[in-house]
């Protein structure tokens, strides 16, 4: 009797097979998940705290916060009320960003083509390093270089453009001041966005199916007709996305633009004139002596800038991801 009991006790339980993670895995997963969510949520936190602190200013100004041209502090002695609007600066940001794209993207795409299809093997590696180093240079270095080195040259170029193309309204010149213009700021920004546009374009060009390239060559295409017929149609989305990524960078650039652009609260279409705008530079410019009310307005301006760059970036990443998946 007792022997049977002992035998029964010794019969092992069948092992429980489960997909339930072990305790350590649960801890591991929750730690990793919370780390990942912190990074994901940071974007939301940034937006929240900017709008939270800038809401008063935006509510007080209403829609004119986006469209207004004035950035005037309240002067109680004169009975003057504060009036804050980022319209002119937003317009100036767009102008310099678009100029940077017009000048930078062709060069960047050309460089990407050079690296993918034209460059001899020995120059490829150093050229990739050149583009990477350009991406690593901090913006204040570009600012200093743009102000002291590029501007004297660019001023001369601007005069030439005005002399020969002055009949186009964009290149008209009401006052002969050619320094610190949107044109020069766009030039500096163009150099700053070249690395990222080149990198993204190169990545899509590298994904062009080899058999299509070879098919084009087999049909007797020259290198350029191959690029026109195969590479561009295939990589169009990626190049557009890369250009927009560059635009996003250009819109948010602060110190480099600050040094080479004269901030004027006005909307002008003459890009060679020493008068432009940039939301980011304006924030740095006004931040030092801002009172609490103006600080709220600056937070509001930061929120507007944040939303604009986020929109451009979302769109750019969406286009690139879509192209990469196809």
């Amino acid at each position: 009797m007792s022997a049977a009991v002992v035998e029964q006790k010794q019969t092992p339980q069948p092992r429980v097979i489960t997909t339930e993670p072990r305790f350590t895995d649960k801890v591991f997963r929750s730690v990793v998940t919370s780390g990942g969510l912190i990074a994901g949520l940071l974007l939301g936190l940034i937006g929240f705290f900017l709008i939270y602190n800038g809401f008063e200013a935006i509510r007080a100004a209403g829609l004119s916060f986006l469209t207004g041209f004035n950035w005037v502090d309240a002067v109680p002695e004169d009975g003057q009320a504060a009036s804050y609007g980022v319209g002119a600066m937003l317009y100036g940001t767009m102008v310099t960003g678009i100029l940077a794209m017009l000048m930078g993207v062709p060069v960047a795409v050309g460089t990407a083509l050079f690296l993918s299809y034209y460059a001899p093997e020995w120059i490829k590696k150093p050229m990739v390093v050149v583009v990477d180093v350009m991406a690593a240079i901090p913006s204040i270095v570009y600012g200093l270089w743009g102000y002291f080195v590029l501007m004297p040259h660019a001023e001369y170029w601007a005069k030439l453009i005005h002399k020969y193309l002055g009949f186009i309204p964009f290149f008209d010149m009401p006052a002969p001041v050619f320094t610190r213009s949107p044109f020069i700021a766009g030039l500096v920004l163009a150099i700053m966005i070249i690395p990222i546009v080149t990198a993204v374009s190169r990545e899509v060009f590298a994904q062009t199916p080899l058999e299509r390239i070879q098919a084009a060559y087999a049909l007797g295409a020259t290198k350029w007709s191959m690029i026109k017929a195969v590479v561009f149609p295939y990589g169009r989305g990626g190049v557009i996305g890369g250009a927009m990524l560059g635009l996003g960078r250009a819109l948010g650039e602060t110190v480099a633009v600050y040094t080479v652009l004269n901030l004027v609260y006005d909307i002008r279409i003459e890009v060679l004139l020493s008068a432009g705008g940039s939301v980011a530079s304006m924030i740095v410019n006004k931040f030092g002596e801002a009172d609490p009310v103006e600080l709220q307005a600056l937070m509001g301006a930061g929120f507007v800038l944040f939303m604009v760059t986020l929109l451009v970036n979302f769109l750019a990443n969406y286009i690139i991801n879509k192209t990469a998946r196809e």
Binding site: R29, V32, T33, G36, L37, A39, G40, L42, L43, L45, I46, F49, L50, S139, L245, G248, R249, L251, G252, E253, T254, A280, I283, V284, L298, M299, G302, L305, F306, T309, L310, V312, N313, F314, A316, N317
Partner: peptide
């Protein structure tokens, strides 16, 4: 590794975050 439910979303947000202007980070 974990490939959690929000992996795609987190990836997209982090990608977008790399384009946040530096001045906005300072303001935040």
């Amino acid at each position: 590794e974990v490939k959690g439910r929000f992996a795609g979303l987190v990836r997209f947000f982090v990608q977008a975050m790399s384009g946040v202007p530096s001045i906005v980070a300072g303001l935040f």
